[in-house]
């Protein structure tokens, strides 16, 4: 990855009127090589396939799932293995297979988009404070340190507790915040972590000659941050993002389990686990087991994939 970036740097000078088609082709080639390297590692290949499998479910779930998410027109607590209900039904007579499939999108929207937003914000902040240094870096870095001293789950619980605290008549803005509260909380708790990683890389990179050169040329700060430094941060960022994604999946599930995540009857996996626990577990253990398996499988998949990415990045460095 890092090697693939070096030609881009020379092409980014003002004198070189870069042929963008060449650039795109190079990038595509780099991505193709990256994917080849990923699938060359068996565990990473399995992980990636698992993630792709769930991604397909997330995208086309409503076409794949046999029944609706809150369709209660079925017998209750049917054991798994029947043709109609391969994974059984829960205590309210809802098909578990359908709910596990339909729940995939909630995970990907909240954990996936939440991670992307966290990466976006964290990258911008990390680049800025790493490059500028001085009091800005001191203040923001200490704030981040303080923030990271608290467990993400605790912060998320408190934040969601406040947001969800009996808003009786939400304004459209409040409604938007409520509806996306989990996504926003994921973004908020992980952005500082990403920022710290990016800041670390930026501190190293900003001393390199090409950055000095750009500064002497009189480039603007945003240009230097995003055109000069950012490409070199990307490898570390990709590793960090994939790691955050796996944590985010777990956090979304935990929040759902604790009742501050997705609202019922959303087929959120964590919520499904909690709804089927306690006394209900004895009546229909499968209603808890399958969403729990889905959570584990996706987390394992993302972790294997993330390990694979890390290997490639480390090798190329």
């Amino acid at each position: 990855m890092a090697n693939a970036n070096s030609p881009l740097k020379s092409a980014s000078g003002p004198a070189a009127q870069a042929d963008w088609q060449v650039v795109v082709r190079r990038r595509l080639r780099a991505i193709a090589r990256f994917i080849r390297q990923l699938f060359a590692q068996p565990s990473a290949a399995i992980g990636t396939l698992i993630v792709i499998f769930f991604l397909i479910l997330a995208l086309f779930g409503s076409a794949i799932a046999p029944y609706g998410e809150n369709d209660q027109s079925h017998p209750t607590a049917v054991a798994p293995g029947t043709a109609d209900y391969p994974l059984g039904t829960d205590f309210l007579g809802r098909d578990i297979l359908s709910r596990v499939i339909l729940g995939t999108s909630s995970i990907f929207v909240n954990a996936g988009l939440g991670t992307l937003v966290a990466v976006g914000i964290g990258t911008a902040v990390g680049l800025l404070i790493g490059y500028q240094g001085g009091w800005l870096d001191e203040v923001v870095s200490r704030l981040i340190d303080a923030f990271l001293a608290l467990p993400a789950l605790l912060i998320a619980l408190v934040a969601l507790g406040v947001v969800r605290g009996a808003v009786i008549d939400p304004t459209p803005t409040q409604r938007f915040l409520l509806d996306n509260s989990v996504l926003l909380v994921i973004a908020a708790v992980y952005a500082p972590i990403v920022a710290r990683v990016v800041r670390g890389s930026t501190l190293e990179i900003k001393t390199l000659e090409f950055v000095q050169a750009a500064r002497i040329r009189g480039e603007t700060v945003p240009y230097i941050l995003f055109r000069e430094i950012f490409p070199s941060v990307v490898p570390a960022l990709v590793v960090e993002a994939s790691l955050r994604f796996s944590y985010a999946i777990f956090l979304v599930a935990a929040l759902g389990f604790l009742g501050v995540g997705a609202r019922p009857p959303t087929p959120d996996w964590g919520l499904m686990v909690s709804e089927s626990s306690g006394g209900r577990f004895q009546l229909a253990p499968w209603a808890l087991t399958y969403p729990a398996i889905a959570i584990s499988l996706l987390v394992i998949g993302v972790n294997l994939m993330s390990d694979g990415i890390k290997n490639i990045v480390q090798k190329s460095e």
Binding site: L92, R164, R263, P264, P265
Partner: peptide
């Protein structure tokens, strides 16, 4: 609440469930 939401939907009453601490 989940059962009511499913039943009332048949009568055109669409429910958002808001669990409260």
């Amino acid at each position: 609440a989940e059962v009511l939401a499913a039943q009332w939907a048949e009568a055109g009453i669409n429910i958002t469930i808001e669990p409260q601490e």
